[in-house]
Design a protein around this nucleic acid. Structure first.
Length: 274
DNA sequence: AGTGCGACCTGATCGC
DNA sequence: TGCGATCAGGTCGCAC
């Protein structure tokens, strides 16, 4: 999916375009996309005005009046597209929120080819409880001290730890691969064995790739489009992600693909070679 | 408790 | 061109 930079890009755009809009009606053709169930979702959000949109990990939180919220998880292929009612249909749209503010009408269309994503209505206290399960945000609350402590107490591979949302939020497969390449660390290395000097380098590398992702509007490797339907540019700057069989831009060695935790993993056997 | 792997789905691409 | 295998920005839940 959309990882932190992609979800944050969407959040910023939605905040610019749909705050203060009322959810006048909801259309859907895939009830599973609406949680806890379609009826409760519709009942919970219909008629409410969107007051604020935040992000935690890879989750978008839409705040409504009356202490209610709904969250959206895009998983791998979810998109949230802002359109006018008269705009042509978008592919794989399974939910449409029809919005209005005075005479102005907009639609927020949720498109999702693989149908893994969802919109979930929940109360504010339920949301708060749910968010307790996530690790720190790498671009705000994660400090080097916390990062060191997280790495030290986990013996799984560093790549799995980086991607574990209960330990650190928002990093997925693309940015984990690229950060490890930047830091010249073998993705199979046990988290707790990484030397302190390398931990510092990795901490900075994580920050660097996420900021680069944000700056370039996210990675549109396959499906990702922002709220305006545009692609991001980060895929032009991939360091190792998806570069199986191609030369490493640093040393020319052929990039290898392996599997870690059942996820495709790319690395340079020379610069990241144990 | 910790880990590992199938399930959830559909589409794109690769290899024969 | 056709067809099967493999792969895909992510979690979940259920067996060990």
């Amino acid at each position: 999916m959309p990882e932190l930079p992609e979800v944050e890009t969407i959040r910023r755009q939605l905040s610019q375009s749909i705050i203060g809009y009322r959810i006048a009606d909801i259309w859907f053709d895939n009830p599973k996309a609406l949680q806890p169930n379609a009826k409760a979702f519709v009942k919970g959000v219909r008629g409410a005005v969107i007051t604020k949109i935040e992000r935690r990990a890879k989750i978008l939180q839409f705040f409504l009046q009356n202490n209610a919220t709904f969250i959206v998880h895009l998983k791998l292929t979810g998109r949230l597209l802002i359109r006018k009612p008269s705009d042509p249909k978008v592919l794989y749209a399974h939910v449409i929120l029809r919005l209005d503010k005075d005479k102005d009408k907009k639609e927020l269309r949720f498109s999702d080819s693989r149908k893994f994503g969802y919109l979930r209505f929940l109360q504010l206290d339920e949301l708060k409880k749910m968010l307790l399960g996530f690790g720190p945000e790498p671009l705000s609350d994660l400090t080097l001290t916390k990062f060191e402590a997280i790495l030290k107490k986990n013996k799984k591979t560093i790549k799995e730890v980086l991607m574990d949302q209960t330990k650190i939020s928002g990093i997925g497969n693309i940015y984990a691969n690229d950060a490890l390449w930047l830091a010249k660390i073998d993705p199979r290395t046990s988290s707790q064995t990484i030397l302190p000097v390398k931990v510092v380098i990795l901490f900075k590398a994580v920050e660097e790739v996420l900021k680069e992702g944000l700056k370039t509007g996210g990675a549109s490797d396959q499906w990702y489009l922002n709220a305006y339907g545009q692609k991001g540019e980060y895929q032009k700057y991939f360091k190792v992600y998806g570069k199986n069989g191609k030369p490493c831009s640093r040393c020319g060695t052929i990039i290898k693909r392996i599997v870690i935790g059942s996820r495709g993993t790319f690395y340079c056997p020379k610069c990241q070679g144990g």
